[in-house]
């Protein structure tokens, strides 16, 4: 199995007021293609920072990240954006749909960025897959939380990414809706062979993944699987 994500001795420090805040300290792990991977830990342990760095949303201070075979340090912001567009999907805790775009317009953004023809047709198919065929022309504000997260899932899987990063994907949803979203996430993972990296507080969800790490104060406290 090829490695889709490799993190080596990763450290990150932020400046807060007049002192440095060491958010991540020498973190290393690997994720293989098609694998599901969870990052757990208490609030402030550095989970979201780690996710952001792995997806190339921020730059590292120390260490290296290889995403889809590319060393992120070698890429500038636009280079990392292109890599994300071609290989990465995102699911956020608060959905992060573009509020001024309809459901289907949100879904087709990654496809259109890749220059896919007939993106709208594909977008509608994806929405149908997540059970929202009849909500295609609705704006995010006209959808419930669960519906919004399903649109976000359809968008995340639209460009058939090699890896999908999910930041607390069920954190803003009730249990029932959360379970449905989880199921959808894992179904799509299986169907498309997409590696899944999930940041979560939810230990039950973490247990469903192939591998997981537990962070505490920026360090890996435990590796499972």
């Amino acid at each position: 199995m090829s490695k889709i994500l490799k993190v080596e001795n990763l450290s990150k420090t932020y400046r807060s007021g007049d002192h440095d805040l060491h958010v991540l300290n020498k973190v290393s792990f690997e994720v293989n293609s098609g694998e599901t991977f969870a990052i757990v830990g208490p609030s402030g342990s550095g989970k979201t920072t780690l996710l952001g760095l792995c997806a190339g949303l921020d730059t590292t201070d120390e260490g290296a990240i290889w995403l889809c075979g590319q060393n992120l340090v070698d890429l500038d912001e636009d280079g990392r954006a292109l890599l994300r567009n071609q290989n990465v999907g995102f699911v956020f805790q608060d959905f992060q749909l573009l509020p001024t775009l309809t459901a289907v317009e949100n879904v087709v953004v990654p496809l259109e960025l890749r220059g896919v023809k007939k993106a709208m047709d594909q977008g509608k198919e994806l929405l149908a897959k997540v059970g929202l065929a009849d909500r295609a022309s609705h704006y995010p504000s006209q959808l419930s939380g669960g519906e919004q997260q399903r649109v976000a899932l359809a968008r995340a899987f639209a460009n058939q990414p090699s890896i999908l990063f999910a930041d607390e994907p069920t954190g803003n949803l009730d249990d029932e809706t959360g379970t449905k979203i989880e199921q959808l996430l894992f179904d799509l993972n299986k169907e498309q062979g997409t590696a899944l990296v999930i940041v979560t507080h939810d230990l039950e969800l973490a247990q469903k993944t192939d591998k997981s790490i537990r962070l505490r104060s920026g360090k890996i406290e435990e590796t499972i699987g």
């Binding site: 636009d78 954006a81 994300r84 992060q96 573009l98 001024t100 953004v109 990654p110 960025l113 968008r155």
Partner: peptide, 16 residues
């Protein structure tokens, strides 16, 4: 700004 950040997450360049 938030929408712009999301667009960048999805792969849109600075210029775009």
């Amino acid at each position: 700004l938030k929408s712009i950040a999301v667009l960048k997450c999805l792969g849109a360049s600075k210029k775009q």
